[in-house]
Design a protein around this nucleic acid. Sequence first.
DNA 1: TGTACATCAGTGAACGCGCGTTCACTGATGTAC
DNA 2: TGTACATCAGTGAACGCGCGTTCACTGATGTAC
Lengths: 195, 195
Amino acid sequence: MPYSPEHKVQTRARVVESARRLFNRHGFEQVTIDQVMASAGLTRGAFYHHFDSKDELYAAAVASFTSCNPFAVKTAQSAEAIDDPKQMAQMLIDLYLSDEVLDNIDMHCPLYALPSDVARAGLEPQQAYTDLIRGMRHIYRVALNGMRDADRRADAMVSLCVGGMVLARTTNDPELRRSLRASARHQALALLKTE
Amino acid sequence: MPYSPEHKVQTRARVVESARRLFNRHGFEQVTIDQVMASAGLTRGAFYHHFDSKDELYAAAVASFTSCNPFAVKTAQSAEAIDDPKQMAQMLIDLYLSDEVLDNIDMHCPLYALPSDVARAGLEPQQAYTDLIRGMRHIYRVALNGMRDADRRADAMVSLCVGGMVLARTTNDPELRRSLRASARHQALALLKTE
DNA sequence: TGTACATCAGTGAACGCGCGTTCACTGATGTAC
DNA sequence: TGTACATCAGTGAACGCGCGTTCACTGATGTAC
C-alpha cells in the first residue's frame, strides 16, 4: 500500500482548486489541462489518474464552487443563527459590490465570473449555479423575514448584486464601473431597509 | 471591374451578421470560421478576402451589436422624440425580461448573452459594450427625467434587467427562471413609477 | 533495525484531430472594342 | 449586338500548431519478513 490513502485525495483537491481558480479567471474552454496541472505542481499525464476527461473536471470544479465561493451557501446556512441577519445581508451587499472584490479576480463570485459559460454548459454546472443563486437569495429572505414582499425583494437584490458586477466587468470605463455598482448597492440596501 | 462595387460590401455584411448570431449563441471562442462562412453560404477560403484574422471578425461583429441588437442605442436616440418616454421605458422592461425573448436566443441582448466572454476580450468589444450600457441607461434616464435620484434609479434598472436575464440563463430550474425575472421586472417598474 | 518487494502516483513522449491560416486555382462578372 | 479580356470574389486542398488523450515507464512509499 504505497502512499497514504489521503495522498491521492489531497492531490485531487489541489487540482480541482487550481481548475476552479483558472476557470473563474479565463472561462472553461480557454483553460488547458496542462495549465491546470502545472498550476497544481504536476504534469499532464497525472491528470488521467484523477479524472476520466476534461468534462469530469468541469463538474468537480463547479461542484467546489458551492463550498469555495467566499459568498456561498455556507454563509447562508448559518445566516439564521446569526444575531442580526439584516446586518449580515448588508455586509454581504457591501462586500459583493466592493472595489476590493472587483479588483481581485480570484475572489470573484462564479455567478458573474462565468455566467455565459455556464449558460452554454451542461446540466451539472447549471445545477451548481441554481444552488448558488438559492443560497444567496436565502440570506436576503432571512434578512427580510416578515416584511412586505420579502421574497420578491430578495430576488431583486440578487439580480442587482449580480447584474451590477456582471456589467462592471464588461466595460472598461472606470466611471461606469463605479456608478453601476454604487447604484446597485444603494438600491439593494434600500430594499433591505425600507418598511 | 468585375462584380458591382456593393457586392463585396453586402457579402461582408452577411458574414458579420452570421458571426453575430453565432457568437451570441455559442460565445466567441466556440465558433469556428468554417461555421460562420457556412452560415453565410460561403466556404472557408473566402473569409480572408474580407478579414485579416478572426480577431478582426470579433471587432466587426461586436461593432454591429449596437445597430443589430433589438434593444439598442438606436431606440435610445429616438427616445426623447417619443410621445411618452415613460411608456417606452415600461415597454422595454417588459420586453427585455419576457418569456418570448428568453426563449428565442437570436433575440438575446449581448449584454447577457456573452458578458463573461467580453470581460475577457480586448478593448474593442468592451467599448461596444460600454455604448450598449450607456444607451440602455439613457432610455431610463429620459423616462425618469426630473424625478428624484433619476440617474441612480436608471443605473439600478439596467442592473435589474441584465442581472435578471443573466441569472435566468444560468439556471435550469423553471420556477427560479420565472421568479427572478418577474421580481426584476416588478422592481424595475416600481423604480420607474414611484414618486 | 534493515532490506527486498509490490503498488500505483507521477512522468513525458507520442498520437490524432480540429481549427486558423495560406495559396494556387476557378469562374462569374462588367468593360472595351 | 456580340466576343475577348481583365479582375477579383470564391474554392478547397494543404499546412502547422495546440490541445485532449494514451501509454510504456519511473520512482517514491508503505509493508512483509
